[in-house]
Simulated scan of single mutants.
Amino acid sequence: MPEVDRKQVLAYRVAAQGLHRRQTDAAALTVFDLGLQSTMRDTAAVSLAARLDAVLTEESFVEDPRFVLAWTHRGAPHYHRAAGLDAVRAALVPLGEADAMARMQWQRKQVEAAGVSATEGLFAAARAMHEVVDRTMSKGAVSTAVTRRVPEGMTYRCRGCQATHILDQVMRLAAIHGGVRLESGVWPAALAPVTGRPPVTGAPDPAAAAAVVRHYLRLHGPAGATEAAGFTGTTAKTVKSCWPDGLAEVRVDGRLAYLPAEDLPALENAPEPDVVRLLPPWDPFLQSRDRALLVPDKARQKEIWKIIGNPGALLADGELAGTWRTKGSGRKRLEFTLTPFWPLPAPVRKAAEAEAERVATARGFADLRVGWA
């Protein structure tokens, strides 16, 4: 059984996720095998700036018909290849009631008290969204219309606006099954029907679910079922029930982990991660669930992954070497503050400042100022 240390794993992930050498075609990036999370405006464009030769603005990227934005993994918005959206939808059908309930995450208690099963409530909402969303609509308008069509237990009374709404996580999880996507580049959120959307079926597809686990292990491996479950928003038991074939066992600093067997040579011969990149919050590299491997120091983990308001991360020579934040001055100047975790050599600092220029371009700023904390 091959044995590797964390540095070798990080070098493999840098290369596997397209950070080692910039590419020319966004659709060819491996990160789209899982999806590119876009929780905040411009984060997707900044992730692409770290991986592509050309710097694309958010506006130019969102107009590319090869991609579609939808609520998918864990109910979070992700860009996917449009041609693969049906496979993503199939992979997100719960494999049982325990799986459906686990995906409710922070609203699990409300769903448990709803008087209907999580699966029943999820697909009642999916059918309602399929019926309601026949054109571009605001999220609020969709919520109002769908709330009238779902079981009462799947709704709640909002004190702030004195209205009844469908549970937000139920709506997010149901949208993809109802053939509903998000409008790219629109804020506040707007929803629209997916072109050629199929009828709502809710038929589980273990093979499709296994494909997502395989993609996770390829991009974030070697890893285990617990880490894959954390990404998909379900339980390790559910992930093990659709565990893909053809995996190699690997020991990472003595811990058993798994990787697609065909990727083992790439792990054993990972190139030196001799690059500097500025990664936005929720960049794929930061989505690995074994955070202690990414950043062994717990205090530094808390600097990167916060409860609210994550910063970006500075990747240097395979290590997460610091954080960065920005403050815009209108749409003219972007103020950068980079905070390294340790003293960085002058060439690394210079490379980070060059990356800041790429980030500013991706976000549509013509000027920037970089400061080091």
Rank of each mutant, 00 (worst) to 15 (best):
V250L: 05
G371D: 12
R197N: 12
D168R: 03
Y258S: 09
L256Y: 04
E59P: 10
I308Q: 13
A354E: 15
K327C: 11
L182R: 09
D33P: 08
A28C: 09
P281Q: 06
M104G: 06
V180H: 06
Y216E: 02
D33E: 14
D263W: 06
I304Q: 05
R181F: 04
T238R: 07
G185M: 06
P206M: 08
A28V: 07
V150M: 04
E272M: 09
L264A: 08
R325P: 06
P198D: 13
A207K: 11
L173W: 00
V9Y: 05
Q169Y: 04
C158Q: 12
W243G: 06
R197K: 15
L293F: 05
G224D: 12
A190G: 12
G35P: 03
M129E: 13
A356S: 10
R369S: 09
L217Y: 09
T119Q: 10
V31T: 05
E58L: 09
P347H: 02
L36T: 01
A125H: 08
A87N: 04
P343R: 00
A87Y: 03
E112T: 13
L34S: 02
L92Q: 06
V180K: 01
D297K: 01
R108W: 10
R89L: 02
L52A: 11
G35R: 01
R13V: 07
P244A: 11
L293A: 13
L92K: 00
W106A: 13
E152P: 02
